[in-house]
Design a protein around this nucleic acid. Structure first.
Lengths: 329, 329
DNA sequence: TTGTAAGCGTTATCAT
DNA sequence: ATGATAACGCTTACAA
């Protein structure tokens, strides 16, 4: 690979001049610029990003650290972030933590060591404690999950009211013994649980069983099975995450429970399959495109002004009603 | 951040010694090593990967370039690759090309410029032409898609026979007017089309309509709709990719076609939803874990011995029979 | 066993 | 408008 020295030599200028041409500096004689560009083209030169990054102590990369790459919610956000970053000439490094605090730390360190300009991150609940460490070292925008601090840039749903709305929807459709499956890894599960309980309370209801489990299909399946087997079985199941929804749906099928006439089902996030199954699932859809785009914009602002006051963007979900929760009869 | 100089100073040694301790070099006096490790701990030192990479002209990162991150097949492979690479102390940078040759080129260049040790890549058909350019510059393992060259390390399904088996399964279950939806971006779509045709031919059948479309849900939906509206409607639809399967299934629901009694459906890859819908979908499952693991191992071998002869690993899929294609009655 | 110093490919400062 | 050169943080001959 040709380097900047080769180009300088070929163009008969110094490396400094080549660097200036590359950086679109002012004050370069058009003729010189032309010669340099020529040499660049001829040698098929591309600047070494490693060297540039070492020298400049920064890079045109951002990190996206998500808790589960199998969750369509996060891949959707990934796409949006990639598009927004790409438009600014940045590339995106995606990392997967599996809701594992050790991996969170690992990847945050790796990204920091890679001189990424900043990180978009969906942390576990445990991360709250370490937040201030990282926050001071690396521009960071938190997505999807609330963090108990006024220092963090945040982009997420109003999870409590979204859950409240979704639960109220169930109540208005006549369901009374409502059980819930919540993710145990993040603040989001907790917040949705709050909204869920609040809605029940407002109607003088009690929950018909609540499980906090790891937000994946299998645990969702098992917890839903337990709900369906308990005496005084619920007439509706609320799930706080699309993988839990899938697990619960699987359990309903396994038990041959009619939906929604015997048990209704609602969840979060639009998925490929939610509208394909029978009955289609009522969900609180999150604006993933918005979330990714706003988070990226916020991150770029934070990068430019590290000390600007933090911004919290609270978005609203959209209730997508479908047969899985509509009043039977 | 503390750097190697700080550590050297704190430990009262030279930077070279610190570097040697870090690299686990022989010939370091235990006592010195202890002092250095102490200083490292005290200063919370982490080596700067950028500088290391610049100096060493390599890095402990590999790239994974996939054509569609929304395709669960690729996220599954991503997980397997990440695990295998992590076990070797490597991190994985995932990139998304959207089946776009320009993006392929872009990301391959970015990764090359990042000094990645190698790349695992699922290329478009157009990429074949550029393969030799990159092949000489960067260790590369091709996954999922056949490339017409003896130079490439390859890990993929025997797509033609997998499609052949899947089609034969339909025929044996009494379906005769079989239509097909194939991805138009990759060699895989083409190869599966070959196997599909071959199986039909062996039974003296002709296809009942074939569409090559962009391998995403919406195009699959539209093509399937067209198939269902044509006169002499097929009695089975073969899809070569899970997003096309989703699109076709959506079309079948939209047209209220009974599956499989009116029209059967088969596809590739296990998905969350394939077993959740009614009827569950018969698929040719690919061993994504194997693919990712083998590809990563192959890549590490290629990195160590750049001139070893190329290896082609051809795997077998597993036919997962489900109600969507079983003989009605 | 350890230290010295060159060099990886850039960019930015200071001259000219 | 352009050139020399130091520096970014590390590794690795070569010396001692």
């Amino acid at each position: 690979m040709a380097n900047i020295k080769d180009v300088a030599m070929a163009a008969g200028v110094s490396t400094a001049t080549v660097s200036r041409v590359l950086a679109n500096h002012v004050s370069i004689k058009p003729e010189t610029r032309a010669r340099v560009l020529d040499a660049i083209a001829k040698l098929n030169y591309r600047p070494n990003l490693i060297a540039r990054s070492l020298r400049a102590q920064k890079s045109a990369k951002i990190g996206l650290v998500v808790s589960d790459i199998r969750n369509p919610f996060f891949t959707a956000i990934g796409r949006a972030v990639e598009d927004a970053a790409y438009a600014q000439g940045y590339s995106v490094l995606m990392c997967n933590t599996d809701e594992n605090p050790d991996k969170e730390e690992l990847y945050l360190n790796v990204l920091h060591d890679e001189n990424v300009a900043g990180v978009i991150f969906s942390p576990t609940q445990q991360f709250g404690a370490s937040f201030h460490n990282y926050h001071s070292k690396i521009p960071m925008v938190i997505i999807d999950r609330y963090l108990e601090t006024d220092k963090a840039d945040l982009v997420l749903l109003d999870n409590a009211s979204a859950a409240h709305e979704l639960t109220t929807h169930l109540i208005q459709n006549g369901f009374r013994r409502i059980a819930g499956l919540f993710g145990d890894a993040s603040a989001t599960g907790r917040d949705r649980h709050q909204g869920f309980l609040q809605a029940l309370r407002e109607h003088g209801l009690q929950d018909a069983g609540v499980h906090f489990v790891s937000p994946r299909i299998q645990p969702g399946y098992e917890a839903a099975l337990a709900l369906l087997e308990q005496k005084n079985r619920p007439d509706a199941i609320f799930t706080s995450n699309s993988l839990l929804t899938a697990g619960a749906f699987k359990a309903l099928r396994a038990k041959q429970v009619a939906v929604p006439s015997e048990v209704a089902l609602v969840g979060f996030d639009e998925t490929t399959w939610g509208q394909l199954v029978d009955p289609p699932i009522t969900v609180m859809a999150q604006p993933t495109g918005e979330i990714g785009k706003i988070a990226t914009e916020l991150l770029f602002q934070r990068i430019q002004e590290p000390h600007r006051p933090s911004t919290k963007v609270i978005l609203k979900g959209e209730l997508m009603q479908a047969a899985s929760s509509l009043k039977p009869k």
